[in-house]
Design a binder for these strands. Sequence first.
DNA 1: GTTTCCCTTAAAGTTAACTTTAAATTTTAA
DNA 2: TTAAAATTTAAAGTTAACTTTAAGGGAAAC
Lengths: 162, 162
Amino acid sequence: MLYTIGDVSEKTGLPAPTLRYYDKEGLLPFVNRGNGGIRKFQDTDLEWLRLIECLKASGLQIKDIKRYIDLFIQGDTTIQERRKMFYDQKECVEEDIKALQNTLDMLTYKCWFYDMALELGSVEAVKNLPDSEIPEKIRKLKAKINRMHVSSCQKKSIVKAG
Amino acid sequence: MLYTIGDVSEKTGLPAPTLRYYDKEGLLPFVNRGNGGIRKFQDTDLEWLRLIECLKASGLQIKDIKRYIDLFIQGDTTIQERRKMFYDQKECVEEDIKALQNTLDMLTYKCWFYDMALELGSVEAVKNLPDSEIPEKIRKLKAKINRMHVSSCQKKSIVKAG
DNA sequence: GTTTCCCTTAAAGTTAACTTTAAATTTTAA
DNA sequence: TTAAAATTTAAAGTTAACTTTAAGGGAAAC
């Protein structure tokens, strides 16, 4: 099964110029061309795109993903380096998830806060609520948030891959 | 307790020029100035910075955060809009966490794959492994990944906040 | 056949969030 | 009192990842 760039764009949701940009940056070295120089994508190319999007989501930059593809092309001598790349990225993503969970705690607290503000008619009224009126769950959240530092909601993703 | 911009930079890890940039963009309207025009941060300003970093981590842009601060300054008439903002962002972050968990599944699989490749000496050997040699956990992961679309590891964070 | 898509490239433009620079002023330490 | 360190501003520069534009070529619908 062969696909044009338009087919792939529709299948993946990535704009065709983005796919051409990825190709230009060396992220799609396996995509063949037809007579008139027209790209013919295969199912394996769609799998590559899925991996590329995953690596991007994990915080890797285009040039780092190209680095991985270059290593792949070099073959089995680069297994160690590729392995390290995935372990490093896994660690980054685990930290990102933790950071996002802190962010989610803050947002959950704020959602409760503004639910109450809407109910009581003012922000001040919520601030003046006695502790006994605040659900246990929210009190714990508030305490956790107060222990947080600025850096606990920041991402660590950017790492020199290699 | 009052802090200079240098103190705050050290406390938060944010470079002083970044703090000035936030101020210029209207994110720090509560920071007072001394005689010579020098910023005097208070503990409440540090709390604002913590909220700002959380909102940034949730995917909000600077201008959206400014919008929130403007709404805050306007007072209780904007409670509904602020509430909606937090609910929208909460939803975004929940989706981001799900996407990152898909990314993590892919990376976990790849880590196993390259552990095996290192052990067996080649990528091909891992591809040729009979199903019976693949741990149940990894087989499930592989099946899950095969069901994934490109979009399942993409972030949804960017939303017109309002 | 021709018109209309869809494809191609190269190159310029966009955007957000800083970051750097330069020049001036203020504060702090000796 | 003076020198060093930190602060101020405005403005220009940077970076990544696209996105848009322009100019052209080949295949399918009518």
